[in-house]
Design a protein around this nucleic acid. Structure first.
Lengths: 237, 237
DNA sequence: CGGCAGTTTGATGTTACTCAATTTAAGTGG
DNA sequence: CCACTTAAATTGAGTAACATCAAACTGCCG
């Protein structure tokens, strides 16, 4: 990890918790956050946070993709969610100094650490920040509950379709989507670890989706050919 | 639903969010909460909250067992967690007026509703309440993540063992446990819906646990004969 | 051009589901 | 307290979904 220049380098999204703490991009003063905020860049595949590690900082992803996961004793791993620019690693980490999960960089990644004490201080000062955090909390909880329902009740096809739809929605909030092409830098193994299948089976299902003209994932780009069908398969209700 | 006498009837546990809002049992004044808090009793099996319903109140379970779940379009249902006395239905509901889940009474249940506006007001006043809520939030998030890992990566045996251990820990915080007997008023169908299996398969696994002298569940009581083995099977790491 | 990581494909094995019948337990009213 | 009723749990046989193993193929990068 090496430091980079402060926040000018870090794109902001007008959404989520990070912006609430820092203020809107046009009113942000890089110098003011010098002491309690810093930025890092890490290469693809590097681990950023390890399970049971403690930190005085709260982390936000600024650029690239990451993922949060749990590793089981025997090596199996479950990806809990994917982190996109603007995402807090987890709401709980604003209050808890211990991480119960690990985080890895999926692509090259830029992230920011903010002193927890400073974040909590601002939280106490500003109702707007509390609101942003509460919103993040409820979105996070709802997403978790949906994932639990998917893993517990749904078939391989349904799980994969749901994951793709979920990621599409999140990507679309940050990027302009042209011609139904979504940047999605996932290996099939990542999809497998996220939906609780083997990479082999994911390959078969994605192959089937391609043959049926639903979606096509390659080179880190998802081309959606039949959104309606994807939604029919991957929607909870 | 019918009203009952105010909070004297409602046992308190010195743990969790409800107590933080109301103060410790010995310093609690029932009269003072008259306007913004009420209690209800419902029979076993009754639905308390429906998905997409909105409410001006924040709910806490006071007595009995409930469960939070999502129902899919075709009838499948996923139990997200079980609610025990002292549990907030969900942290998100302190800020969100819309429920994204449903709640049912497992046994006869006593619960309390508190005006969200009043709870938020107290939240703004008292750091202790904020802390209790934050703690609840991080416990909830960690539990969700564990469940996701279990559903995604683990076998039927592991899932069931994990659920039992999780419930045992929670029950033990509220009850005195004698001779390794835990009150657990679940039908096998509830276990099935919580761990994403069929009731038939749950029956087979529980039968196997019984034959192997690990645990025995009947009449709403779980007798643990070999805790070490149960933990070997059901621990994530 | 060779090597490597990722994907695809086929053959076979295992786990958990489905369907159906049977047993046990839990109520319920006489 | 006992026959009757109904819900829950158990058991067996057959099946579907997904895992595992192994080999072949693709694209990429040095």
């Amino acid at each position: 990890m090496k430091s980079v220049s402060p926040c000018a380098a870090c794109p902001r999204f007008g959404l989520g918790f990070c912006d609430a703490v820092l203020g809107r991009p046009d009113e942000f003063d890089p110098g003011a956050s010098a002491g309690w905020q810093y930025h890092r860049v890490v290469a693809a595949g590097k681990q950023i946070v390890a399970q049971d590690q403690t930190s005085p900082d709260v982390f936000v992803l600024c650029g690239g993709w990451g993922f949060r996961f749990l590793q089981l004793n025997d090596g199996r791993r479950q990806i809990l969610n994917f982190l996109l620019p603007g995402d807090l690693f987890s709401v709980a980490s604003v209050f808890e100094e211990r991480f119960h999960f690990s985080v890895k960089a999926l692509t090259a990644v830029q992230f920011s650490g903010m002193r927890r004490s400073e974040v909590q201080f601002r939280l106490a000062e500003s109702p707007a920040i509390v609101l942003a955090l509460a919103k993040t909390c409820s979105v996070e909880a709802e997403a978790s509950d949906e994932i639990i329902a998917m893993l517990g009740q749904c078939s391989a096809e349904e799980r994969i379709a749901h994951l793709l739809l979920h990621l599409m929605r999140r990507v679309a909030k940050r990027n302009v989507i042209r011609e139904q092409r979504y940047p999605l830098p996932l290996r099939q193994q990542h999809i497998a670890d996220a939906v609780g299948l083997t990479a082999v089976h994911v390959s078969r299902i994605l192959g089937s989706f391609r043959d049926r003209g639903i979606v096509e994932l390659s080179n880190g780009v998802l081309k959606v050919a039949d959104l309606a069908e994807l939604e029919r398969i991957g929607s909870l209700n």
